[in-house]
Design a protein around this nucleic acid. Sequence first.
DNA 1: ACAAAATCAGATTTTTTTATCTGATTAAAG
DNA 2: CTTTAATCAGATAAAAAAATCTGATTTTGT
Lengths: 143, 143
Amino acid sequence: MTVIFSKKCEYGLQAVLYLSAIEPGQIVSSDEIAKKLGIPKEFVSKILQSLTESGIVSSKKGKAGGFSLAKEPGKIRLIDIVAAIDGLGIFNSCVLGFPQCSPDHPCPLHEKWGKLRTEAYEMLTGETLDELRGKTMKKMKSL
Amino acid sequence: MTVIFSKKCEYGLQAVLYLSAIEPGQIVSSDEIAKKLGIPKEFVSKILQSLTESGIVSSKKGKAGGFSLAKEPGKIRLIDIVAAIDGLGIFNSCVLGFPQCSPDHPCPLHEKWGKLRTEAYEMLTGETLDELRGKTMKKMKSL
DNA sequence: ACAAAATCAGATTTTTTTATCTGATTAAAG
DNA sequence: CTTTAATCAGATAAAAAAATCTGATTTTGT
Ligand code: SF4
Ligand code: SF4
């Protein structure tokens, strides 16, 4: 199957987007996130754990614990989440996976693909969670 | 890991590109393709088998057998290969895999992603193997 | 006719990804 | 202090994708 983000990454993006839509300062449990987004609870939990290490979300243990953003939404971009989970490999490796690829012998897709890849990168880099908040909240309310 | 095409699809594209670069009428064995592209031989073989069913390549059995394009390179587009192997799902399903997604409540990426997806589609649809042949041959000679 | 070299078909193995389970730790609340 | 509800950590299981193996069939050339 053709895929862009791994499941892990999809879920991570969804979860962080979810966190960016709640009241600042509030905390939500992985259970709530899992239920709202229809993701296996333990999986969400694991992913958020790894994002905690990356400094994107922060966690609070114990009763009434849960997750929240670790920094202001104005300082988090979607690319940060992708980088933390899937890495940025896709943005500097080639679509076709040709061996021994050098700029001297570009494959037929090189140019166009490069352009597209840059646009994708910009899409994920351009706006912060802050700027996306309006749309995000609408989306989350509809779940 | 972030991926665009499955390995199968990558290999399929590479192999068909390879076939489009040889002399018209010639036939090459899966063994040669595998060696040149550094792909497991049986895997190439399997993928080309499936592309045979899709009518993109044709195969000749027996000694001195092998594979070749099934139609003129002017009638094959990259998207045809992708469609045959990975399907076109990616072009009408959403990046983030949100459940219950309706146009009423677009996620923050909807618009930009849609645009990008269309461009990707056009990239794979726009040119035929014929038009790519120049670059393809250069690439193949460098392997 | 026979041997060699190839595809074909399908089973099997290995690896990676996705998901689940279990127990420990932590912290709030009664 | 004890109960409860949460994260955390790491092992394990299940599913999917990638790769390999095996044997049959087909065709060419000797
Ligand atoms: S030439 Fe460029 S686009 Fe093509 S396979 Fe190599 S790196 Fe990728
Ligand atoms: S709103 Fe659009 S882009 Fe966003 S998840 Fe849904 S279909 Fe995908």
